[in-house]
Design a protein around this nucleic acid. Structure first.
Lengths: 336, 336
DNA sequence: ATTGATCTCCAAAACGTTTTGGTTGACTCT
DNA sequence: AGAGTCAACCAAAACGTTTTGGAGATCAAT
């Protein structure tokens, strides 16, 4: 409740000494230090955050911009990631603030508001686009940041990402090895890096196998988007026998399309993200996931290292993608 | 980039005048005001947030505590709500910070850290418990706050909540009217208010109909919890013919249990929350939802009014619950 | 007894704003 | 001419920390 001045007065000490005692400096005697600390807890003293921030010229805050378009912020377990990240940042004295992007305002403006108002020490970027104006701005400002997902920026920046290209290529090759020849792709919006690179992985595998890359439909990265895209592919004269979907949510939408058109799922399908929900769909959804423990913690740790000044090149983590085999990918290739 | 002092110097004015010009006070001439504002945008001036906060004794921040237990934070679309809330708070100059609760730390401690360190002006509480220590603490501190979900606190506090009792009672009565007699309930953890009140709604309806209330199983508010709880009910000698589930996620888990035990869903089922995913399950999940537009905005608006000093009694919103009928509730009562 | 270390402690400045309580000069009214 | 009003500006204080640059003891060594 009290402030430093009151605490110092009640102890008969100077503000300086109390402050330094609490911070553990060696130029205050052990006895005094103990006495001060005891009084501090007794009084329930907590330093005023604004005052410290002003003096230390650090905001002790990190912002993450969230596009307000529902579904465009990220997969459903995304909040768990943010929460884990915030937890690790908090251990370093940083709090995570949400920077929503209202409709009609650019993400860039939001970044500027936070950075130029010195409201934050660093930023977290999610759902990166191939050409991401936020990245360019933050690089020009020299503000530390980490992105979840890569970009096509020429200047390297810290990121953490899954190797979507390799994952989708492998998934496609696996379908090919299982005998599938008409392998479709349900793609996410191509301005997003993750969606683009996943499509490229599928495409590369198709070309390696000498197959046509015409079975591709794009939609919003949500159930509805996957549903509509799948319907589109199922209208083709030569239907796919297998579907590689950019996200689990899209795959779940596609599953419904298959049920409606097919009367049951005769088509193999695989998604990406390993949503918990996937284990409970019908059939249980086979999927992929980025390897590595606790994405949020890694994200936080990269950011702390970026703040500490480590060069961007040392702060780029590209994680392999692993299969989570359940049942939806096991349909025979001749079914459709 | 610059600060007030530099800006004032470059204009040949005092800091006071520049500050007041920017804030639109009437004691600076229109001409000067225009000149100052022009110079400010030219210099890209933004007031230093820490300095203003210190001086104004307001943190300009609001925190929302997030239990780090995955699945215990809230339904998947929860982040959308937070994002919408943050957006409306931002319009009032408040930013939303995430206060994760690390394992082994109580939510109370987190509240204290934020409140006593004057890091926030107000708090948002989600997933309230029947006896919620956070509520008691904040009330004792006199800090404005709003909860998403009611509590059993004796002192009234601002909240926004759906009428789970009425909703679950109505759902159960509807099953009864459709001829069901063995209506089970898949309950969430009873320390949560929402889970408790939903069970009571089911129970009240059962008693009104003169039915036994033995078909009730409790689990974590996730797919897996619903799955396990449903299996438990299906092991009973006298199986339920209809299932009222505390959340959509639990209902989706229960759907899988029905598929496994039943070989298909012969049992009616209804959930709560209206997850987008529910439209894509097999069968499409019938559910309930709190009425009202844009929960996040309402949440924010209640908080702003609480900060403005409106009494708690005027800030309690209990919204009716409406059915979202898809298909899963239409199974005939004799099926099991 | 002086010098130099060493140990404790502290006054004051600084961080960048907002706000208080003025001052100055021009103008109006009697 | 003097009193009063008003418009336009500003110096200084305040918010609560952290940090700089000492100051005053105490003690050991000369």
């Amino acid at each position: 409740m009290a402030n430093l001045k009151q605490l110092a007065h009640s102890l008969g000490l100077s503000i300086t000494t109390v402050s330094r005692a609490l911070d553990g400096y060696s130029d205050v005697s052990a006895a005094t230090r103990a006495r001060v600390r005891e009084a501090a807890v007794a009084a329930g003293y907590r330093p005023n955050a604004s005052a410290r921030r002003l003096r230390k010229q650090r905001a002790e805050l990190v912002a993450v911009t969230l596009p307000s378009d529902p579904g465009h912020v990220g997969p459903p377990h995304f909040l768990d990631m943010l929460s884990g990240c915030a937890e690790h940042l908090a251990a370093a004295g940083l709090n995570l603030v949400i920077a929503p992007v209202p409709r009609g305002v650019s993400e860039l403006e939001i970044c500027q508001r936070f950075v130029d108002g010195r409201r934050v020490d660093a930023m977290l970027l999610v759902r990166t686009k191939r050409k991401d104006e936020r990245v360019e701005y933050l690089q020009s400002r020299g503000i530390p940041f980490v992105t979840n997902g890569r970009t096509e920026s020429l200047i390297p920046h810290p990121f953490i990402d899954g190797d979507g290209f390799a994952g989708f290529r492998a998934a496609t090759l696996r379908f090919h090895a299982a005998g599938h020849r008409r392998i479709g792709h349900i793609a996410g919006p191509q301005e997003y890096y993750f969606a683009h690179v996943r499509r490229r992985g599928w495409q590369a595998a198709m070309e390696e196998c000498g197959l046509a890359i015409d079975l591709c439909a794009e939609g919003a990265p949500l159930e509805q988007g996957g549903y509509l895209a799948a319907l589109e592919l199922l209208r083709q004269p030569s239907r796919p026998t297998a579907l590689v979907c950019a996200t689990d949510e899209m795959a779940i939408g596609a599953l419904r399309a298959l049920r409606e058109v097919d009367g049951g799922s005769q088509i193999s399908i695989v998604g990406h993200d390993d949503l918990p929900m996937g284990a409970f769909t019908s059939p249980p959804l086979s999927t992929m996931r980025m390897t590595g423990e606790n994405l949020g913690a890694t994200f936080a740790s990269l950011l702390l290292r970026a703040i500490a000044g480590e060069p961007a090149e040392d702060l780029q983590e590209l994680h392999a993608v692993e299969f989570v085999d359940r049942d939806s990918h096991r349909r025979p290739p001749l079914a459709a």
